[in-house]
């Protein structure tokens, strides 16, 4: 259909552009896309260009923001210096030790490490804690009986006390010992898991609890007197 014909029809009787004509003329339009013209059709070119640009922008956006279709967002990998890593490791160890202490030790030694006068010896400032790491590890592993003196005050246990009546792993012992040795103003070096397992195997055959003096003599150097 030529443009002139089209126009003349449109203008001839515009108010009576019936539905049939609407359908027919548009069907014609769809069939003959190229109206006779010498110039390029600008509109389709513009649309093709726009569409191309859109696809380009969209693919870049897709590649950047879909996180490779993973379920979970990327975890930020923070590059830490060796020092930071070390301090984070120690922090985690101590906070784990704190939880173990609260669950298994604080009922007697109290959350503040002060113990109960005449009943349970304090851990804060105790020479037994600041002594060689072997002391605290051995006590936790096997328990203690008899009378001991802590900071010059005597504490007696009528019965033998098992600190670890429920099995406790080397790692847990290392963590809780490290916590005890560094909390409430205590300032002793950390206890490693390897060290505890070494202590455990050293005394694997021992059946009964330690007596205070036994440990004192074993580690006499570190008690400082």
């Amino acid at each position: 259909m030529s443009e002139d014909q089209q126009k003349s029809r449109n203008l001839s009787n515009p108010s009576e552009f019936s539905d049939e004509e609407i359908v027919k003329s548009h069907v014609e339009l769809a069939k003959f896309k190229h109206e006779p013209t010498k110039n390029f059709l600008k509109a389709p070119l513009v649309f093709v260009f726009v569409f191309g640009c859109l696809i380009f922008v969209c693919s870049i956006q897709l590649a950047h923001s879909t996180n490779s279709f993973q379920l979970h967002p990327p975890v930020d990998v923070v590059e830490l210096t060796a020092e930071e890593k070390e301090s984070m490791r120690l922090e985690k160890k101590i906070s784990s030790g704190e939880k173990i202490f609260a669950a298994r030790c604080a009922s007697c030694h109290q959350a503040n490490g002060m113990g109960i006068e005449g009943q349970f010896p304090p851990l804060a400032g105790s020479e037994w804690v600041s002594a060689d790491a072997g002391v605290i590890s051995n006590i936790i592993l096997k328990g203690l009986k008899g009378e001991i003196s802590v900071n010059g005050v005597k504490y007696g246990t009528s019965a033998a006390v098992n600190m670890a009546a429920v099995p406790i792993s080397d790692r847990e012992i290392a963590n809780v010992s490290t916590y005890v040795r560094q909390a409430w103003g205590n300032d002793s070096v950390e206890v490693t898991e390897e060290f505890v397992s070494q202590v455990r195997s050293e005394h694997a055959a021992k059946q009964d609890q330690w007596v205070g003096d036994e440990l004192r003599s074993m580690f006499s150097d570190s008690f400082g007197n």
């Binding site: 009922s107 007697c108 109960i116 009943q119 019965a159 006390v161 009546a165």
Partner: peptide
């Protein structure tokens, strides 16, 4: 079940 511990 038997328990033997100290409850301050």
């Amino acid at each position: 079940i038997k328990y033997n511990n100290v409850m301050a």
